[in-house]
Design a protein around this nucleic acid. Structure first.
Lengths: 179, 179
DNA sequence: TTCTCCATGTAATTCGTTACATGATTGT
DNA sequence: ACAATCATGTAACGAATTACATGGAGAA
């Protein structure tokens, strides 16, 4: 039940149309909760039916016309309720770890190349996050909002750092040099 | 498409019935690919229909009777193929990070207690993994299989370490002492 | 006999993904 | 006029979650 709340958060930050939301989900919020335009349109319809958001009055409402949404007080209340509610952490589910475990049974042939590729992808993502940190979070920011957004970005940076280090160590441990 | 391959791996390690698999998915393999008994039974049926596994001949095949499965050569081949195939890393998707982002908009009321709870849960999981490491991976193990299983466990340990540290730092950053 | 596990399933729903469809706007 | 792009959707499917159903075996 996270997607509707991701959308409510995005719309509170700035009222938007479906496609604008889709673009914003390719960065920012999408860094920790991705979504496609099909999911977003479906969810916008649901949220509107349930009275959490409404479409801003448009001159000519028609298919193919831009439709902007804003959050209603009920939507904000629901988001506050959900944010405060306790939730268990999801158990880890990672195909790459599963593949290594399988490789212990059927052999490691062909997996090293993909480990190196993952290492490269995580390094790139890390660099991107660090760019954002440098740009958007100069030292000396103090508001609670800034601090919250910063710790979230920190999670992204630390996670990518973990993956990169772990992949480096694992490649070495398995006797595969780093090219 | 990971669940069938998780099951093939588990069955290669040791032929099992559905319920035995379910129990093993509560530990070991389940630490990085969890599954419920409903998923497992459905997938066992599919794998059998497709000729990847077969039920061992039982004295009295009937509902409510234990049914053991073993992997056929086709199943092993499919697992080897999947293990070697390239796969993109899944984008991060974490409800807790989303809630912090939402809290930047609707306020932090009620979220600190859950952050502390998550910290506690991650510390417990970390302790459990470290127990396993001490028990199953004494220094001096050398086979490729052991090393592979060890780096997988290492990923679990490092991930839990990351979450615990990140939660400690975030609670502090948000001005909430660690009680 | 009834209760409690063990063991194997079915059913309904939701969420995410992939592919496709349609209208409006802008540039050439 | 045509193509490309913007924008909003539909349809179909697969995977995961939740709840429920059925049967067998042993203990009180």
């Amino acid at each position: 039940m996270s997607l509707p709340h991701a959308i409510l958060t995005a719309l509170l930050e700035k009222p938007s149309s479906g496609l604008e939301l889709t673009r914003r989900f390719d960065k920012s919020i999408g860094y920790f909760w991705s979504a496609t335009h099909q999911q977003i349109y479906r969810e916008l319809g649901r949220l509107e039916r349930e009275g959490y958001i409404r479409a801003l009055p448009a001159p000519t409402p028609a298919r193919g016309q831009k439709k902007e949404y804003e959050v209603l007080p009920e939507g904000r209340a629901e988001l506050a309720r959900w944010t405060a509610a306790s939730q268990d952490p999801k158990p880890l589910r990672d195909p790459l770890l599963l593949r290594l475990r399988a490789a212990a049974v059927v052999g490691t042939d062909g997996i090293e190349a993909d480990l190196r590729r993952h290492l490269d992808l995580h390094r790139r993502q890390l660099a991107e996050y660090e760019e954002i940190e440098k740009r958007d979070f100069p030292p000396g920011l103090d508001s609670v909002e800034d601090r919250l957004q910063h710790v979230v970005l920190r999670a992204g940076i630390d996670l990518e750092t973990f993956w990169a280090r772990w992949l480096e160590q694992s490649l070495e441990e398995l006797g595969l040099d780093l090219s």
